[in-house]
Amino acid sequence: MNKTHEELLKTSVTRLEEIAISDPRTKERSSWDCVLLSRQQGRPGAATYIDLICDEFMELHGDRTYGDDPAMIGGIGTIGGRAITFIGNRKGMNLRENIERNYGMSNPEGYRKALRLAKQAEKFGRPVVCFIDTPGAFPGLGAEERGIGEAIARNLKEFSTLKVPVLSFIIGEGGSGGALGIGVGDKLYMLENAVYSVITPEGFASILLRDPSRAQEAAEAMKMTARDLKRFNIIHDIIPEVPEGAHKDPLFTANAIKETILKDLDVLCAKPAANLVRYRIRKIRGIGEFEGSEAWWTTLMEVFKLTVDLR
């Protein structure tokens, strides 16, 4: 029994209304409810949090190569006199903005802008904070022509060795490589109702379950909630939202994010750059579940010794 797209949409809207009046403190939210909440129209985005967290903020545009991607926001903000580079996916808060910002799906120039700003931050010793909220990178003609794969790959590589602290927050949807493209750093956090996965539940359902209408089932199977990822040791911690969800009280979540940023930066900014990068790489290098592992730590130390910056 294939549900039509419209039927699914109607069920989703009804479900969101139910979530709105239910008391989530009584029981854990399902993965699908998190998927719906993370995508909800009006959920605070990167721009909202930047606005609420920073004393001042100046947006910086463009990748200096091709153009400026409105689906990616970047710039310099200050918190209590401390300068921080902010980078984030930007979906927009209403339909008009959604269209303008391509629903937060970046083209290569978005990732290249992010990298440009990260390298700029590195040059001037500023830490970087990333806000992730995207269904994924844009699967369009131009994106492929301009090397979306290369753009993401380069970001993964460059962010993994960036010599300033990098904090990433998944504030809504963390969709696949498009999310990871600004998601490599020292610390990774998820908001309570955010999701992070290798593919959308709809994509997973249509490819592996051979039925796109089984997205709800896919969401549970994929283990994509903040709780799941904390248990897997992929994220460092969960940032709380008010019971109804972040849209009900953006300031509450913004304050929690701000507190986390300040606490982390106090520690991370005091570390020598080489230590920071070595620790970051060690964390990334350790991710994976398989049989027959070797003592990789000693090998990694040997490789560090062969480098100029990390020995």
Binding site: K157, M222, K223, I234, G288, V303
Partner: peptide
């Protein structure tokens, strides 16, 4: 996809290995 988030993270892992 069958390995969920662990498979996504292999992108970061291999890219950071390339950086090293």
């Amino acid at each position: 996809m069958q390995e969920g988030i662990f498979s996504l993270m292999q992108m970061a892992k291999t890219a950071s290995a390339a950086a090293l």
